[in-house]
């Protein structure tokens, strides 16, 4: 080590940063590597300890998962339905709400905008009690509707859309469309929505992943039929069942199935996602 801070040259600092970055890269990826390797190994192979080389039992494990009492493929399908519908409703209506605040002038505008910002951080858990009582009264227990429809009012997604709109949607464009005689709903659907595509793509992924990973609310609503449950509830079941009796190859395969779709989508879209996080962050 050179004498003082000042003495450390750029080359040395660069080397240190690469070493640390590689360390954190490994720290982030290691678990998933172990998971994928273990998902290809049989129960007896897993009992012998860990190796870094994949084995040949991936198909067997997949077959075992298919015939297990925990209906993971129903879970995949259910999660897909809930997440897809949530994603569509959430992004469409959040963009619409942002448009309502961005494109028009009216008395309550400032108040409503301030109100949405104020409630942005309040977690859904604190209203969960009233929420289930309401859902029970509406006769919607065991249904996907209470998991999907409330996402229409998503303050955080709204806020992101509003921020993006300020730079992407000039008022002059709307004026021009009005002069051409377009109706307001048409202006929203054919002018605002297409211009918002990049922001919608980012929030579509976030809302999809958020719904896909959500455990707290679905576990309170989908309580009866295992075939109607979403993935996180089934994963939780895996943990609470008698763990020691499980075929570990099967357990790893189930976990793989529940996180692999998100990893694939993320790797395909990561450029937009990481950029999207930063855009939201310029605020703050």
């Amino acid at each position: 080590m050179p004498k003082k801070e000042r003495g450390i040259n750029v080359g040395a600092r660069r080397t240190i940063s690469y070493v640390v970055l590689v360390f954190f890269t490994i720290l982030c990826l290691f678990w998933f590597y172990v998971l994928f390797i273990n998902a290809t190994r049989s129960h007896s192979e897993l009992a012998t300890g860990f190796t870094m080389i994949p084995s040949t039992h991936a198909i067997d494990n997949l077959n075992n998962v298919l015939h297990d009492t925990i209906p993971i493929f129903y879970g995949l399908l259910n999660s897909l339905i809930v997440s897809f519908c949530t994603c569509i409703l959430c992004t469409y209506f959040s963009t619409m709400t942002a448009f309502a605040i961005h494109a028009y002038e009216y008395k309550l505008k400032k108040f409503i905008f301030g109100f949405i910002l104020a409630i942005m951080m309040i977690p859904t858990q604190v209203t969960a009690l009233g929420f289930i009582q309401l859902i029970r009264k509406m006769n919607l227990m065991q249904s996907f509707i209470p998991l999907i429809v409330p996402s229409i009012a998503s303050p955080i997604v709204f806020f992101y859309m509003k921020q993006y709109m300020e730079s992407a949607l000039p008022q002059e464009l709307l004026e021009a469309a009005r002069i051409d005689g377009a109706g307001e709903l048409r202006i929203f659907n054919t002018i605002a929505l297409p211009l918002m595509k990049p922001a919608i793509a980012v929030q579509a992924i976030f809302s999809f992943v958020g719904a896909w990973n959500n455990y707290f609310t679905p576990s309170l609503i989908l309580t009866k039929n295992d075939k109607k449950k979403t993935l996180p509830i089934l994963i939780a079941k895996l943990r609470s069942a008698d763990f020691a009796k499980f075929d570990m190859g099967k357990v790893y395969m189930m976990i793989t199935l529940s996180i692999l779709p998100v990893i694939i989508v993320y790797l395909l879209m990561s450029r937009y996602i990481v950029g999207g996080v930063a855009v939201g962050a310029v605020k703050g």
Binding site: L21, F24, T25, C28, L29, W31, V209, W212, N213, Y215, L231, P232, I235, A236, L238, R239, V251, I255, S258, I259, V262, I263, Y266, L267, S270, R271, I273, V274, V277
Partner: peptide
Amino acid sequence: FKTVIYLPNLIMASAFAM
């Protein structure tokens, strides 16, 4: 590096815990 360090944020917490 940014892609990798952000990845765990999107993983299903329940599956990650399992």
